[in-house]
Design a protein around this nucleic acid. Structure first.
Length: 213
DNA sequence: CAGTCGATGTACT
DNA sequence: GTACATCGACTGG
């Protein structure tokens, strides 16, 4: 771990091709600074969504009131409500006018873990805290009120970190979708303990911190 | 373990 | 009406 002060990722980081941003988001430190504490964790699983050729994307059929944030400037949070009870969070990519974003599906907790337990409710083990998109939102206290928040100058931001080696990153099909299901636009930190699902047939090893020391 | 299924609100056809 | 970028409780082996 570097000893230099950690830097908030600038807008230029997000204003790039979505698949590049998705891969380079792995290992970065998602952070929500609240009045009481700082919730943070390494991003270990993401999925890319784009208006071009991706019928699973909320933006595929054009701009609406729900997906409006996806078409706005990069570096903002797109939060949506799903299945009547859950929130999922995305980071908006590409230049303004293009509807693209990256779903944050799993995080490895770093700080504020006690607060995450409170946010998630009782009787959860550590792995259950953030091993899914709606779990991560709940653990980090993210909900619909945060839709459209800037990741550049608000209490929600992502800190830079050293890039992971390519050998640590796995691409696979996205989870929980029917359309465009063949696109390999899910990116994971290989074998991380906090993934929402196992990437393959391998037994899920308790390998957190493997790439983050 | 793996598979199934109900909960529950909103966007969109 | 129907589908939905999910989760957790429950079943059976």
């Amino acid at each position: 771990m570097s000893t230099s002060p950690q830097k908030i990722l600038p807008r230029a980081f997000y204003e790039r091709p979505t698949l590049e941003v998705a891969k380079s988001l792995l290992g970065k430190v998602f952070t929500h600074r609240t009045d009481d504490c700082q919730l943070s964790g390494y991003i270990v699983e993401v999925e890319a969504y784009h208006q071009d050729g991706d019928s699973a994307s909320h933006s595929y059929h054009g701009r609406t009131s729900r997906n409006d944030i996806m078409f706005g400037p990069a570096g903002h949070l797109y939060v949506y409500f799903i299945y009547g009870m859950h929130y999922c969070m995305n980071v908006v990519t590409e230049e303004e006018g293009i509807g693209a974003a990256i779903l944050i599906r799993a995080v490895e907790p770093v700080s504020g873990i006690d607060e995450m337990h409170l946010n998630r409710g009782s009787n959860k083990n550590l792995q259950e805290l953030t091993s899914g998109p709606a779990k991560s939102c709940q653990a980090f206290g993210i909900s619909g009120v945060h839709n459209g928040f800037s990741l550049i100058n608000s209490e929600i931001y992502i800190l830079d970190s050293d890039a992971l080696p390519d050998s640590a990153i796995t691409a696979s099909e996205r989870i929980g979708i029917q359309k465009s299901a063949e696109l390999p636009w899910r990116f994971t930190v290989w074998d991380n303990y906090f993934l929402s699902r196992n990437a393959g047939k391998q037994k899920l090893a308790k390998a957190e911190h493997k790439y983050f020391e």
